[in-house]
């Protein structure tokens, strides 16, 4: 029987581990998420705090914050998304390579928050698909870390090989 277990548990002799391709790919992916810090307002301060030593997001392999969408695969939308900014957020999302994930951090990014007004988009999910929402105004760094662990769980369950095949079929026309 092929085990779903991802870590090496020493049941097989020598340096051989038998597992599913999905499990390996997802295991690698979930421990090397490169976030794109989309800091749009006050929540970005908490995002920065979670990268600093006290909360230390590098414990999850996520400390490589990239300010270029082409080098990152998880957009953390931290802050208020105005209608004027929404276009930019989408363009940056489009420039990120697949596979990619989006975390809506805080009340503003999730729902527009307290900004019920003509200028603010009522939730970034109007413009990009969101994987994890975080409540709070602002959420504490712990909440962000919790969300990132949820995202890791989500990545672990993805049919990565199937997705790759699908993408290949699409590009082959």
């Amino acid at each position: 029987m092929i085990s779903d277990e991802v870590g090496y548990n020493g049941k097989v002799e020598g340096d051989v581990i038998v597992t599913k391709a999905d499990a390996v790919i997802n295991w690698i992916r979930k421990h090397s998420v490169w976030p794109m810090p989309m800091g749009l307002a006050c929540c970005a301060i908490e995002l920065m705090a979670s990268a600093a030593s006290r909360y230390d997001i590098s414990r999850f392999g996520m400390e490589v914050m990239r300010f270029s969408p082409r080098q990152s695969d998880c957009m953390i939308v931290a802050g208020t998304v105005t209608y004027k900014m929404a276009e930019v957020v989408r363009r940056i999302y489009d420039q990120m390579g697949d596979p990619k994930w989006v975390v809506a951090m805080g009340a503003c990014a999730s729902t527009g928050g307290m900004y019920r007004s003509y200028a603010v988009m009522q939730g970034v999910d109007n413009i990009v698909p969101v994987d994890v929402y975080i409540s709070g105004c602002p959420p504490r760094p712990e909440a962000l870390l919790d969300a990132m662990m949820k995202l890791q769980d989500k990545i672990a369950k993805e049919p990565s090989v199937g997705n790759l095949r699908k993408a290949k079929a699409v590009s082959a026309g």
């Binding site: 929404a86 276009e87 003509y118 200028a119």
Partner: peptide, 26 residues
């Protein structure tokens, strides 16, 4: 009105993919 008025977003290509527009806030 504070909530805003239905308005199209400026970027046509983004609107085409996302179907988003400026909507009055609840």
């Amino acid at each position: 009105p504070l909530a805003g008025i239905d308005t199209p977003l400026p970027a046509a290509d983004v609107v085409e993919v996302t179907k988003a527009s400026v909507e009055p806030a609840p």
